[in-house]
């Protein structure tokens, strides 16, 4: 069962929930934790393990071969991303704009645009006792996170498909990176906080999940700040709130040091139990 942990707003506690739930659940079951927030992955700060695999992930982009080129200009007309430009007797490729659709390469009449790999980021597979941990990190300066996320998902489904529970720490926002992650999951946990910012962004994410047709539930973090509008919203829209986590300074302090919360805070552990019980019910429905 693949569970994406997402939120519209950043900093609501996605990583906190992902690492604690993964580590706690791994005491009883075979669990895979994947950090798919490839722009700023933080799960690795909380999960120590030994490295099993490390590999560079590439996206394929065209490379111009002058000796073959007929200067017909078809490639520059084909490309809808403006990644190819004709300058005098030269074709300039702008790899940062390329979406790797292969149209220019495969439709070139002279085979003058073979595809070559451009490094996007690093995928690491670590093992921490009973927990498999995958982390992908985007190289700085690379614009598109989606190809790295997609290839990480492919790596997991190809190499690591025997886990009872997969927890995917997702990117913030509501656009392409988070859609790529949540669209491949069986169920989505939306982490929010009870403030107007949290609620506004939760609503955007709820509408995105509804559009994708993804089942989801809400977890309210930092209970105690803000107001009760998030709960009113959820009950009005018939969205189930599985559990809450309290707003406590000592939890923020544990987090700041890169430590897990549940070994130190019993009420945090109880909330994790509630989530695991609910996930068992979801598993039966799937």
């Amino acid at each position: 069962m693949k569970i994406a942990i997402a939120s519209g707003k950043g900093g609501t506690g996605k990583t906190t929930l992902a690492v604690n739930l993964a580590s706690y659940a791994a005491q009883r079951a075979k669990v895979l934790l994947a950090d798919l927030d490839v722009e700023e992955p933080n799960s690795g700060i909380f999960i120590a393990g030994h490295l099993l695999t490390e590999k560079t992930i590439f996206s394929m982009v065209p490379v111009w071969q002058q000796e073959n080129c007929l200067m017909c200009g078809r490639c520059t007309k084909l490309c809808r991303f403006n990644a190819l430009l004709q300058l005098g007797e030269k074709i300039i490729v702008m790899p940062q704009l390329c979406h790797s659709c292969y149209a220019c390469s495969e439709l070139c009449p002279a085979s003058a645009l073979p595809m070559e790999g451009k490094p996007l980021g690093i995928l690491r597979h670590l093992k921490s006792r009973d927990l498999d941990f995958i982390e992908s990190k985007l190289f700085i300066g690379i614009e598109q996170a989606v190809p790295l996320i997609s290839q990480t998902l492919e790596y997991m489904s190809g190499n690591l498909s025997d886990h009872e529970l997969e927890l995917w720490d997702s990117p913030p926002g509501t656009s392409c990176p988070v859609i790529t992650v949540t669209n491949a999951a069986d169920f989505v946990l939306l982490v929010t906080e009870p403030t107007p910012f949290g609620l506004y962004d939760l609503n955007l994410t709820v509408e995105t999940m509804e559009q994708l047709g993804k089942p989801f539930a809400v977890i309210v973090n930092r209970l105690g700040i803000g107001n009760d509008e998030v709960f009113k919203y959820c009950s009005k829209r018939n969205i189930s709130v599985w559990t809450t986590f309290p707003d406590k300074r000592y939890i923020a302090e544990l987090y700041s040091r890169g430590e897990l919360i549940y070994p130190e805070v019993p009420e945090f552990r109880q909330s994790l139990d509630t989530i695991l019980t609910n996930l068992d019910k979801i598993r039966e429905q799937l």
Binding site: G10, D37, E39, E40, L138, I142, E143, Q144, A145, G173
Partner: peptide, 10 residues
């Protein structure tokens, strides 16, 4: 700005 280091931030 947005969080992250990807396309909206760039």
């Amino acid at each position: 700005g947005s969080p992250g280091i990807g396309c909206p931030v760039i």
